[in-house]
Design a protein around this nucleic acid. Sequence first.
DNA 1: TCAATACTTTGTCCAAGACAAACATGAGCA
DNA 2: TGCTCATGTTTGTCTTGGACAAAGTATTGA
Lengths: 321, 321
Amino acid sequence: MSTEATPHIPGLSIASVERETGLSKDTLRVWERRYGFPTPERDANSERLYAPDQVQRLTQIKRLMDRGHRPGKLLALDDAALVALDAARPSVLAASNVPQLDSWMHLVKTHDSEAFQRQFYREMAKRGLAGFVQDIVAPLITLVGEAWSRNELGIFEEHLFSQHLEKMFRTVLANMSPQQGSPRVLLTTLSGEEHTMGLLMVEALMVVEDVCPVLLGPQTPIEEIVRAAQLKQVDAVCLSFSSAYSPTLSAQGLRDLRQMLPAGIELWAGGYGVKAIRKPIDGVCLMPEFKDLYDCLAKWRTEHGHEPVSASVISLPVTPK
Amino acid sequence: MSTEATPHIPGLSIASVERETGLSKDTLRVWERRYGFPTPERDANSERLYAPDQVQRLTQIKRLMDRGHRPGKLLALDDAALVALDAARPSVLAASNVPQLDSWMHLVKTHDSEAFQRQFYREMAKRGLAGFVQDIVAPLITLVGEAWSRNELGIFEEHLFSQHLEKMFRTVLANMSPQQGSPRVLLTTLSGEEHTMGLLMVEALMVVEDVCPVLLGPQTPIEEIVRAAQLKQVDAVCLSFSSAYSPTLSAQGLRDLRQMLPAGIELWAGGYGVKAIRKPIDGVCLMPEFKDLYDCLAKWRTEHGHEPVSASVISLPVTPK
DNA sequence: TCAATACTTTGTCCAAGACAAACATGAGCA
DNA sequence: TGCTCATGTTTGTCTTGGACAAAGTATTGA
C-alpha cells in the first residue's frame, strides 16, 4: 500500500471526454487555448488527461449551453455561480403545467414497473393519445434526462423507463394498423442520432391524424433515406433530432438530404435538437414544437387538395410484387 | 431549365462524410495524405468537398474493413476488385435446413411489409413461438446480416426488416404479461453491444417457459447491472452477445460481472458472440445455442426445488418505496 | 505446433493559424 | 417603444504536417 500524496486518479483521454460531454475534440482544445479551461494533465506521451471533476464541470457547462447560455460567460464563472445557474432553471419545463410530473418521477426512481404500466394506460385513457404524448411523455423524458445528468438517477432506472415507454408505444401502435391514410411519411434519424423515442412519439401523433407513417428506426445514411423514400413512395420524410445532436450537424445533414431528395418529397425535422437551429433551411420544414407538426400536416393537405384518402389511393399506381 | 454540362453536384463536407461513412475526419485526411484517396475538391474557402461517388466507395471500403480486411490493401484495389471481394463470402448457415428461408429473403429484398406480417403470424401459428424463433427468426437475422455485408441488401431493407421483427416481438410479448413466474431473469447487454434483437428472442423463449424476464435494453454498465439485479431481486442475469462483439471483451466483461455479482445470482450468456469463447468461465453459464438455455433453466429449477414461487416471494423482505 | 520477437500498418493526437457563421450591440427611423 | 440595418465580437470547425502507440503481420526459435 503506497501512501503517495497523489492518489493516482488517471483521468480521461480527450476522446473519452468528447464522448462523455458531447463537446468535440476541437472545441475542447480551443477552449483550453482561449479561456484557460479545462486544464488537463499530460500523460507520458504528452496527451491530455482530464481530471474527473473537470469533466463534470464541462458536462454542467454543456447543459447550461443547451439552455441558451454562451460559453464565454460560463467559462468565466466559478463553481458556485454555475451551480446557482443550474438550480435557477428556467429549464425547458420552467412552469410545468402538470404538477403531477413529480409523482411520475417518483415512479421512475422507485422503478415500480406495475404501477408505472397502470398509470400509463390510465393517463392515456384520460387525455387521449396525443395529449398524453405531449403533456406527459415528452416532459417526462426531458425530466428523466435532466435528473440523470444531475446524477439523481441511475442508468438502470433510465433504461427501465425507456423500456416501459417503448413497450407501451409499440403495443398501442400495433393495434392501430396505419396501413392507409395520407400523407405517407417516412420516419427515421440521421447516422449518429440513436434516439428512437422521438420517432415513436411522432408516429403516435401521426396515426391519430390518419397519416400513414413508415417507421425505419434510427441511423439511416442520407443516400438510403432517399432510396427508401422513393421505393416506399412517401410524400414526406420526417427526421427527429435529440438535444444531444449538434445543431451544426443537424443543419448540415438537412441541407445534404434536401439536396439529394426529389423536389416532390417534403422534408420535415422535429425534436429538441431542432430548437437550436435558428436560420430556416430552404425547402425544409422545422418543427421545434409538437404543434408545428399539425401546421405542417395542414399545409400539406391544403396544398394537395384534401379530398378523401380513398380517391387518391385508388388513382395511384400500385407497384406489383 | 438549364442545360449545363456539369449538373452542379457540389459534394459533401468532411463532417458530412464522417457522418455518412463512420470514418473520422482524421482518418479521412490521413488516407488522402498516405494513399492518395479520396481526392476531394476544395470549395472557395479551401475546405474539402467529397464527390458522391467517392463517398460511396468509402462506405464500401468501410464495410469490407468491418469484415476484417485492412485499409492498406483495399485502398490499392480498383472498383472491380472491390466488388469481387464484396461477393466472395462463405455463409455460416451452409446447409440451411429450412429451404423456405429463400422465400423469406425475397420478402426482405422486396420490402413487402404486409406480406411480411402475414407470413410472420402464419409461421408462428404453425411452429409455435419457440420453434419460430429458433428455426426462422434467428437464421433469418444471420442471412440478412450476411446479405448486407455482401451488398445485396441496402441499409433501408435491413432497417425495415428489424422494425418488423421488433414490432412483432413486442406485440406478441405484450399480450403474455409475464408478471410472475420463476426464475426472475434480468436481460441486457454490456456497454458497446447495441443489438437488442437477441434480447427480444430470449425474452420470447423465456415467456413460453414461464420465466419472468426483466428487459433492461442494451448497453448497461456492469455496476448498474449489479444494482439492477439486486433491486429487482432477480435469480439470474442473462447477457446477449452478437457476433460483432469482440470475444476478448465479452470474456473479460463476464469475468468482471461475475466478480461483482452476489454469488446467489446466476450469470448466463447467449448469442453468436458466445460461440467464440473457448474456455469456460467459472460461475458463468455459456449458452452458444438456444437449446442451452433450456439446460440452464432446468438446472436452476432442480437446484432450487421447483416449489411454487409464492413461498419464496413472501419470505423475501420487500423494500418499501 | 506454439510462443516470443521484431517489423509494418494504421488511427488518433498535437500545434497554431484562419475564417465564416452565429450572436450581440448600437444607430437610424417609423 | 419597436423595427431594421450595419458593425463588431464570439465561437466552432477546418486547415497542415509531424509524431507516436496500439494492433496486426511476419519471422524466429523451442
